[in-house]
């Protein structure tokens, strides 16, 4: 029975990992920009939810109405004015990659520094829907369940959008081959910017959800960037369904590792998986070929 609870908690966290990996996949798989400041949107979303809740008693889910559009616009501006100039300037892919790594690291430090100056380094959290719920014999906090459901709904909506709409088709075409997409009249620069902005917006939403059941601080962003990247690599760059599966897998592996080995070694499990996948199956676990 305990094992079932462990698996359940792994799945609940895994849904969140799937969501943040989906957002990173929009940025890295479609817009082809490795954004190392990706997690800062999560940090921003979490702080927004926290302050809205603490100061004005506004429901965290409602605070998304503020944080998500802000993150969308912020990421769009970053892509448009900081990253696109690099694309135009770069002589080839490797220079572009080095440039984006450095610029987005810079952004990471700026955002993290601003948050530290503003709110200090201590861990924050609030109590929201901390009601125990009985789920098939296991006890789960309602906030966890709620966050999981919201994450899965968001992820599935996004998946449907990519799979079944005209816009989604164009985005997937860019993920597969940006040059060929241009040839069939897909406006690659505009849609890449859109995908990048949407990725940031998803991360802000994830931040809101995470803040409902985990404590966070100003330097939490990079941790989630790393996890998102690990999941994306496991699932396959540009592959959406693979990411959701890999997210669940990472959540499960973490929960089982924490239960069977030691809770202090979650990060070690993350990196072991990361290395294993990169060395054995660099194209991702769920991709064909």
């Amino acid at each position: 029975m305990i094992l079932f609870e462990v698996v359940l908690s792994g799945v609940l966290v895994g849904g969140m990992y799937g969501l943040i990996a989906l957002g990173l996949n929009l940025q890295y798989g479609i817009a082809r920009m490795m954004n190392l400041a990706y997690g800062e949107a999560l940090m921003g979303g979490a702080y927004t939810a926290f302050w809205f809740f603490m100061l004005w008693r506004i429901d965290p889910l409602a605070s998304m109405l503020f944080s998500v559009p802000v993150a969308f616009c912020g990421n769009w501006l970053i892509y448009r004015y900081l990253l696109s100039p690099l694309i135009r300037r770069a002589a080839n892919q490797e220079i572009l990659e080095a440039d984006t790594i450095l610029v987005t690291f810079g952004l990471l430090f700026v955002f993290q520094g601003l948050a530290l100056v503003q709110w200090g380094g201590e861990y924050r959290g609030y109590t929201y829907l901390a009601v125990p719920i009985d789920l098939l014999g296991a006890t789960v906090a309602l906030n966890r369940l709620m966050a999981f459901v919201a994450a899965v709904v968001l992820a599935l909506a996004l998946y449907w959008l990519l799979r079944s709409t005209r816009l989604g088709g164009a985005l997937r075409a860019i993920a597969i081959d940006p040059v060929a997409a241009q040839l069939v009249a897909v406006d690659v620069p505009r849609l890449s910017a859109l995908a990048f902005a949407a990725g940031g917006a998803i991360m802000a939403a994830a931040g809101t959800l995470v803040s409902m059941f985990l404590s966070f601080n100003a330097s939490i962003g990079i941790v989630y960037t790393l996890k998102a990247l690990i999941v994306v690599i496991m699932g396959g760059v540009g592959r959406m369904l693979g990411c959701l599966m890999a997210g669940l897998l990472l959540g499960l592996a973490e929960a089982l590792g924490a239960y069977l080995v030691d809770p202090g070694l979650t990060l070690a499990i993350n990196f072991a998986l990361f290395l294993l996948v990169l060395l054995v199956r660099p194209q991702g676990l769920f991709s064909r070929g």
Partner: peptide
């Protein structure tokens, strides 16, 4: 502020 300065340095 040193972190912020470092970040600006990168950019």
């Amino acid at each position: 502020h040193f972190g912020i300065a470092l970040g600006i340095c990168f950019v």
